Amino acid sequence: RGAGDSTVGVKWAGPGSTERTAWALLASGVIARGDAAFSDGRQYALAASVEHSFNDRWSGALYGSHQRGAGQRSTTWSPSLSLSVTERLGTYLEAGFTHANQQPDQAIAGAGLTWMLRPNVQLDASFDLGLNRNSPDLQLGTGIAFYMQ
């Protein structure tokens, strides 16, 4: 019995982005509030992403992050390809590769949906499948993002 950890993050969209290419930084931390059996301990991460729009519907992105905490370090790279189905609905394909110290590498691939509930609120849902024996077999995710000016 018990609760799991919570994660809090702050994203900053940097200057120099253009109409076709944008970049951002993300700093996050895990609040280790879970019981020992449900907690990975305190962790901190710094990530960066770059996205390029090929046209009005297709875009590609590259995400990279480095995470430290609870005696571990890991680096993750994740390329993705996105398609705007409508003005409010989008879908994407993604892959992820993680290298952690003193642990086997992991590789995943998956897909997701994004929905703009309002101009400043996005909902998303995704799944990822493990590509090697060291990766999780299946991961499901949901999220909400708020854009503040």
Score class of each variant (00 low, 15 high):
108 I>H: 11
47 A>E: 05
83 L>T: 02
50 V>D: 04
69 G>L: 02
63 Y>W: 12
49 S>P: 01
22 A>F: 09
21 T>P: 10
33 R>V: 13
44 Y>F: 15
19 E>Q: 15
80 S>L: 01
96 G>S: 15
47 A>N: 03
92 Y>I: 00
41 G>H: 00
99 H>A: 13
72 Q>R: 14
43 Q>Y: 02
36 A>Q: 14
37 A>E: 13
70 A>S: 08
106 Q>T: 12
73 R>K: 10
90 G>V: 00
51 E>D: 09
99 H>M: 09
75 T>F: 14
108 I>Y: 11
16 G>S: 05
15 P>E: 12
77 W>L: 15
59 S>K: 08
103 Q>F: 10
96 G>D: 12
52 H>F: 00
38 F>A: 11
101 N>W: 00
18 T>R: 03
108 I>S: 13
15 P>D: 12
69 G>M: 06
100 A>P: 00
23 W>T: 11
53 S>F: 02
64 G>M: 01
96 G>L: 02
95 A>Y: 02
65 S>T: 06
51 E>Q: 14
71 G>C: 04
20 R>M: 11
83 L>M: 08
64 G>K: 01
74 S>K: 04
47 A>M: 04
93 L>W: 05
34 G>H: 05
41 G>M: 04
25 L>S: 08
63 Y>K: 01
41 G>A: 00
99 H>R: 12
88 R>S: 14
62 L>V: 03
57 R>H: 10
14 G>A: 09
76 T>C: 07
93 L>P: 00
77 W>T: 15
81 L>H: 03
45 A>V: 03
105 D>G: 14
47 A>R: 00
65 S>G: 08
53 S>L: 07
43 Q>K: 14
67 Q>L: 06
22 A>E: 11
72 Q>A: 13
65 S>V: 02
57 R>T: 07
50 V>K: 10
77 W>S: 14
58 W>H: 08
32 A>F: 00
26 L>A: 09
41 G>F: 01
21 T>Y: 14
54 F>T: 06
62 L>G: 00
104 P>E: 07
78 S>V: 01
93 L>R: 09
90 G>D: 03
80 S>K: 02
91 T>W: 03
70 A>E: 03
94 E>A: 15
107 A>Q: 09
22 A>M: 09
20 R>E: 10
86 T>S: 13
65 S>M: 08
14 G>V: 05
58 W>I: 13
41 G>P: 04
83 L>Y: 15
104 P>F: 05
43 Q>L: 04
54 F>Q: 07
81 L>M: 06
15 P>S: 12
85 V>T: 09
47 A>K: 03
50 V>F: 03
39 S>P: 01
83 L>V: 00
74 S>H: 04
85 V>A: 11
67 Q>K: 15
24 A>F: 05
96 G>R: 15
50 V>N: 06
58 W>M: 13
72 Q>V: 07
75 T>M: 14
66 H>N: 14
24 A>M: 05
54 F>N: 06
